[in-house]
Amino acid sequence: MRVRRVVTTRAGGVSAGSFESFNLGDHVGDDPAAVEANRKRLGSELGLTRLAWMEQVHGRTVTVVDGTETGPAEATDALVTKTPGVALVVLVADCVPVLLGDPEAGVVAAVHAGRVGARVGVIPETLRVMAEQGADPGRVEVLLGPAICGECYEVPADMARDVEKHLPGSASRTRKGTPGLDLRAGLWQQLADAGVGRIGVDPRCTFEDRTLFSYRRDGSTGRLAGLTWVEAE
């Protein structure tokens, strides 16, 4: 089976102002009609008719979907499916979009891994649920998408130490020499320790790259999307 992964930028949509232009978040204060138009374009451009969304809350709840759902998955930060043609969507603007897939089992997952979710173990929980659906960590391929980098993500020293305790490898130093977090580095180590052998990293920093949305940089802003699905044969 073929697993597909896509990450959007802020270009190509109809949103205006601080949401310019391809904002896909419907919870950030943008014109609902613009968000709906952007979401419709997302599906049509990719040839997808079934997009699965979630109400992200910075936790570790994982929800299995099959495309029959009528709305976003409530209070969850990871979606898993083994239904071909159902595209899982994660929305971010500095947090890490994590796209996982076992092409042999045909199981995929999309995860919202911000500081809190990464700290409390949303990735190990996702791997556990994927295994219940037939995936094997040794076959899983992962993309860690665009996110704020460790040189830009400044946090209090106590916070950096706390996250490092739960997510080893995440502590960093910013360009100013202050304590920071590199969530992608910590997640990479966590995935590797779980037996995942193929881990790709999109090196773009949302804070530095103005073609991407960044909440830390702009405050009022949109959300980019990471999507993954198994192609229907």
Rank of each mutant, 00 (worst) to 15 (best):
K176D: 07
S170G: 11
V96D: 02
A194E: 06
M130C: 08
P97L: 04
L143Y: 00
V111E: 00
A160Y: 05
M130F: 05
R139Y: 04
L127N: 02
R175F: 09
D193S: 12
G121M: 10
S172R: 09
E141W: 07
V116T: 15
H112R: 11
A113H: 06
V98Y: 00
R119G: 12
V96I: 09
C152G: 07
V92R: 04
A109K: 00
V196W: 00
T126N: 02
D182W: 05
V98E: 00
D158H: 13
L127P: 05
P103C: 05
V96H: 05
L144N: 09
A113T: 11
G169Y: 03
L91T: 08
P97S: 03
M159P: 12
L100S: 04
D193C: 06
G186Y: 00
A93P: 07
Q190E: 13
D102K: 04
A131N: 08
R184I: 00
C95V: 12
A135I: 02
L144H: 00
L100Y: 04
I148G: 12
R175G: 14
R119T: 15
R128K: 14
M130D: 05
L191F: 01
V98R: 00
R184K: 12
L91A: 12
E154F: 10
V90P: 02
L183Y: 01
M130R: 02
T126F: 02
A192L: 09
H112N: 13
Q190T: 11
R198K: 13
A185K: 03
P168T: 05
G114D: 12
G138N: 05
E164Q: 09
G138Y: 01
A118I: 11
R184E: 02
V92F: 13
G180I: 03
R161T: 15
L167A: 01
D158P: 12
P168V: 09
D158V: 14
G121Y: 09
L100C: 07
L99V: 08
A135H: 00
K176M: 07
Y153F: 15
V142D: 07
L187W: 02
